[in-house]
């Protein structure tokens, strides 16, 4: 069998990588390698031109000043070691893979792969984050809600690199939960992020592994916002059992899950309701 040759370009900086990207048809971007190398090792991907972007120092920046801008090359390990500007994102990073995977895998890789099981993605949805894409023509910003278009599909054009994600600091009332078969090296059967931005009076719910894209749960968000309207946004709250159950029901109702090797649609709906109820109880007490 003859395998067509591969050329590899190691990007020096973002401009250099973008120039190379625009000059080649069907280029594949390589950051931490934790997704692409699995595809290559199992013969599912045979990229003909790889652009290595793991040395683009500009994309390693992490700026926090009320507004967070996390460069695409921030690894999961750094999300754990440095304050990543979101408690839920930190919790999500903790559930990714193993130390080896967390040292290599990046936020931009999670966005580039755009898997419905990407653990940081429900958090970006709940934070109402913005994805920053750059090409030689300049930068554009896409709301995360508009970024994913299907499983492993996004609006990123072939000439663009994900350079960062941005969001407003939503305060400490947020959490991420995930169901899987082990505590390490697990792809989510279902994941859920809940953000209660008390200052902006906004609730965000992001659902992972429960549909073709990451989903929001607008009815659940409205319902929870009503609870905080009543109790006071700046106050700690203990939601009633009835309220928690209803919140869980509404979150699960927003899912569009399928049966697959990791779980059934019915199980996914069940665990989403349980996670949402627990997440609300946890977050409501943080003010």
């Amino acid at each position: 069998m003859i395998i067509p040759g591969v050329s590899v370009h190691i990007g020096r900086d973002v401009d250099d990588a973008l120039e190379n990207l625009s000059s080649v048809k069907d280029a594949t971007l390589l950051a931490g390698g934790t997704d692409l190398l699995v595809e290559i090792n199992f013969g599912r991907a045979r990229p003909t031109h790889v652009i290595v972007i793991d040395r683009l120092d500009e994309l390693k920046a992490l700026d926090r000043n009320g507004h967070i801008r996390m460069g695409a090359l921030v690894t999961y390990t750094r999300m754990l070691a440095d304050d990543p500007g979101s408690a839920a994102l930190r919790e999500a990073a903790r559930t990714v893979g193993s130390p080896q995977i967390r040292n290599a895998g990046t936020l931009g890789g999670n966005l580039g792969t755009a898997s419905p099981a990407g653990d940081t993605l429900p958090v970006l949805a709940a934070l109402d984050a913005t994805v920053v894409l750059r090409s030689r023509a300049g930068e554009r910003r896409v709301k995360f809600a508009d970024y994913m278009t299907g499983p492993k599909k996004s609006v990123r054009r072939p000439d663009e690199i994900v350079v960062a994600a941005e969001w407003d600091d939503a305060g400490p009332a947020q959490t991420f939960m995930k169901v899987g078969t082990r505590n390490a090296m697990v792809i989510a059967v279902a994941g859920l992020a809940l953000v209660v931005d008390r200052a902006r009076r906004r609730v965000g719910v992001g659902l992972g592994s429960c549909g073709p894209t990451i989903l929001r749960a607008p009815d659940a968000e409205k319902f929870a916002a009503g609870l905080f309207d009543e109790a006071g946004w700046d106050r700690r709250m203990r939601p009633t059992e009835v309220a928690r159950t209803e919140f869980g029901r509404l979150a699960a109702a927003a899912a569009r899950p399928i049966d697959d090797v990791r779980g059934t649609a019915a199980y996914r709906r069940h665990v989403l309701a349980v996670m949402a109820s627990r997440a609300l109880a946890r977050v409501a007490t943080i003010a």
């Binding site: 190398l37 790889v50 040292n103």
Partner: peptide, 21 residues
């Protein structure tokens, strides 16, 4: 984890690093 190595001091799986990279 059988292929664990240190790459620029960080523990990684060598199977997930493209040789040329």
């Amino acid at each position: 984890g059988s292929c664990s190595v240190l790459l620029d001091g960080a523990l990684v799986c060598a199977c997930l690093v493209l040789g040329a990279a």
